[in-house]
Every structure is written in structure tokens, then in C-alpha cells.
Design a protein around this nucleic acid. Structure first.
Lengths: 124, 124
DNA sequence: TGCCTAATTAGGCATTTAACTAAATAGATT
DNA sequence: AATCTATTTAGTTAAATGCCTAATTAGGCA
């Protein structure tokens, strides 16, 4: 279960446009590392991207992207795995699923409490 | 539907411990305005709280809490309705429900895409 | 060994944020 | 009208954030 500190970290991480877009890129950016595509000898991983590939999509310097990725990783919503001198990045589905579940539970509990209090369904 | 700017606003709003706790308080704090409890002539609303009631639970000055509430309202995750000289505050369930749905959809789409790509279920 | 490549760390700078106190606004009450 | 209550606005300050460039680390490869 995600504790409060962890949730706040996730919200903070996603509450910045650049990081939100990086996260989106990791999630939906095709899951390929352009460095691997350039190198015919390397089998392309369809699941992972890497730091400089992500940076290609943004107008910020590489260290800036690197720092943002670190924050997303510390929030545990992406994973970064080093293979050779590259770092392969994937979304952390489990954390996202949990977070979605938290919101769903929150809404359900609210409605249940409301029902218990009023003895009928929620009114607008 | 929540657009990107709106989602980022929500994450930013909840990505601060004080605002997160205020939000929690609005959601689960008993839904009562202590000012109404003190005044025998006023019927207690079991659903709403107000700015100074929330401020009672924190060690920050009232204007600080007021400013945080404004940010939560601008993120559309709480509502603030003026009645007399008080402002009644409630969680905005609809926005929270939508946000939860976004995460759920994100996870589902990811898994569907993965399945389409690999022709079978997700692997770890 | 020496040079690429990929990524992080360090240090600096401008902007934003989060807090405060004091003052202003708006609605109630006397 | 004068005052009290609830809240916001204004202005200040310290700390955090987000960006940059330059330097460093770490892993291949000639």
C-alpha cells in the first residue's frame, strides 16, 4: 500500500508540466530506445526507453531531464535499470494501478459514509 | 474530461503535505463546521466545513490555510460556497472519480497495448 | 591505454512557493 | 452607524524549484 509520504511524492512529481510530459513519454512514447534503433547490432527493446532518447523529445538540457527522471523514479512511478552504459526506463504499472485504486476507494468510501449518514443514496 | 493542464493542477495541489492534509480533512474530517456547532440557532450541516474550522486543525495562520484552499478549489477538487459570511467547503467527488478513472484507463490501455504487441498477457 | 558514449553531480542563478503580519472587504449583529 | 465575525488581499521573507553549463563518473570499444 502507498503511504501518505509516497502519495505526496507522486503528486509532486506529476505536478510539473515537464515531468508530466516525460511520464507520458515513458508511458506512451513507443517504448523504444532510439540509441538501440541506430545500432543495428542491438536488438530493439519494445518496452524500454533511455535517458537521452527521452531528452530528444524535449528542449531541455540532458541533466535537467536526468534530474526529472530521478524524481519520477523516487516517486516509484517509473523504473530505471542500468544495462551496460545505458539506463532503460519503463513505467511502474503497479504503482499507478495502486494510486488509481486509492482514488476509487476514496470515492466509494465517501459515498458509503454518506449513505450511512443519510440512510439513502447521495444527493447533489 | 480532465485535460492535461487540469490534471497537472490537481497533482500540484496535492503534492504539498499541508494541502494534502487539508484535502484529507475536507474529505474525512467529520464534515462539520465547528462555528455552526457553537451557535445553537444554526442547524449543523453534516456535509460541509468552513475555512476557520479547517484552520483549527493546523498550526498555520488563517491566511495560509485560505490560500491553500484557494489552490485546491482552483484544481477543482473541493467546492467553496459562500453562505452569509461563511464559506462552506466540500470535496468535489466528481473530479476525484474522474481522476481515478484516468489512472485505471491508463493501466488498462498499457496492458492492452502490451498484449497486442506480444500477442499474450503481460510478463514481469 | 585512451577515447567514445551515457548519464549524473556540482555549482550558480532566476523564479516560484509557502509562510508570516497587517490591512482590507463583506456580511452579521447590536 | 458602529462593531464583530469570516475571509481575502497585500507585501515581505526564506526556502525550494527548475533551469543552465562545466566537470565527473562509469561503461564500452579501438
Amino acid at each position: 500500500m502507498l503511504d501518505m509520504k509516497q502519495k505526496i511524492k507522486i503528486f509532486k512529481a506529476l505536478g510539473n508540466e515537464t515531468r508530466f510530459l516525460i511520464f507520458k513519454n515513458v508511458f506512451t512514447g513507443g517504448y523504444t530506445c532510439s540509441l538501440d534503433k541506430k545500432d543495428k547490432n542491438v536488438k530493439v527493446s519494445p518496452l524500454a526507453t533511455c535517458v537521452s532518447t527521452i531528452a530528444e523529445h524535449f528542449d531541455f538540457a540532458l541533466p535537467t531531464i536526468s534530474k526529472h527522471l530521478k524524481e519520477l523514479r523516487e516517486a516509484d512511478i517509473i523504473t530505471m535499470e542500468k544495462k551496460g552504459n545505458k539506463i532503460y526506463i519503463e513505467p511502474n504499472i503497479e504503482t499507478i494501478r495502486e494510486l488509481g485504486g486509492c482514488f476509487t476507494t476514496l470515492v466509494e468510501n465517501f459515498e458509503t459514509n454518506r449513505e450511512l449518514f443519510f440512510g439513502d443514496v447521495a444527493v447533489s
